[in-house]
Amino acid sequence: MPRHELSAFEKHIRRIIAQNLKSASWGMTQAELGAKSGIPTSTISGYFAQRSTPSPGNVQRLADALNMPKSAIDPRFDDHLFEKQPGIEDLYKQLSPNRQQIVLHVAQEQLTEQRQQS
């Protein structure tokens, strides 16, 4: 159970990771992948079922076990990931004025919280 509601981006990342792992480990059981990577089978199962997101260390272990770059498993390691995503300004401009106010309000709350934690 996540500690917070996952964003659409986080859900999308989990879906891609699951798809990439299923494709890269085709013909291998989750137990075999776990043994090869040193990651518990229950954890591997969580990645496949999109219940959890692998840590950077586990992405590396999986990449090593599957003999592939980390970016082939987890798109967050792709140097061009954020170039493919629309910028916040582009998204903001597409929103109605009412929704733009919501975005501004949330951003202000986040900035206040960040400053208080520093």
Rank of each mutant, 00 (worst) to 15 (best):
E109D: 14
E109C: 15
P86F: 00
W26P: 00
Q60R: 11
P40E: 08
R76A: 07
L104T: 01
L33S: 01
G57R: 13
S55N: 03
T29N: 07
L104S: 05
G27A: 07
T112Y: 15
H105F: 12
Y92C: 10
P56E: 03
G27P: 00
P75V: 13
H4S: 13
Q110L: 15
A49E: 09
A49M: 09
Q30K: 12
K11N: 10
I39S: 02
F82T: 04
H80E: 13
H4R: 15
R115Y: 03
H12D: 09
D64M: 13
G27V: 02
Q101A: 15
D64A: 15
R99F: 01
L91A: 12
L62A: 06
Q110N: 07
Q101W: 01
V59D: 03
I102Q: 13
S7P: 02
N20W: 05
P69R: 03
R115C: 06
H12K: 13
E109H: 08
D78C: 11
D79C: 04
K93Q: 14
Q110M: 13
R14Y: 01
K70P: 01
Y47T: 11
A65P: 02
G87R: 14
P97E: 02
V59A: 05
P40F: 03
K70G: 04
I44H: 02
H12P: 00
M28E: 03
Q30H: 06
P69M: 05
K93P: 00
S118V: 10
Q19Y: 05
H80G: 10
K11A: 14
D64N: 14
G34W: 01
E89N: 11
A63V: 11
S55Y: 05
I17D: 00
L6V: 02
S55A: 08
T29F: 13
R115S: 12
Q117P: 00
I39F: 06
S118G: 11
K84V: 05
L62I: 15
A72V: 06
Q30E: 15
Q30F: 03
N20Q: 08
R99K: 13
K93R: 14
M68G: 04
L66V: 04
G38Q: 00
Y47I: 11
A24Q: 07
L104N: 08
N20A: 10
N67K: 14
N20M: 09
P86Q: 04
R61V: 01
P75E: 05
L66A: 07
P97M: 08
A8Q: 12
I16H: 08
Q50T: 10
A63C: 08
R3E: 09
R14V: 07
V59L: 03
A65E: 07
T43V: 12
L104G: 05
R115A: 13
K93I: 05
L6Q: 11
L111K: 06
L66F: 08
A63G: 06
D78T: 07
S7H: 10
P56D: 05
I88N: 13
D74H: 10
M28S: 11
L6W: 11
T43S: 00
K70C: 08
R61C: 04
F77Q: 10
Q101E: 12
K70F: 01
G87D: 12
F82V: 03
E32Y: 00
E89M: 14
S23N: 10
S42G: 04
R15F: 12
F48V: 08
G38M: 01
L81N: 04
L91Y: 03
N58H: 08
L62F: 02
F9L: 15
I88M: 14
Q117N: 06
N20R: 09
K70T: 07
A35C: 02
R76T: 15
P54T: 02
G46H: 05
E5Q: 12
A18Q: 03
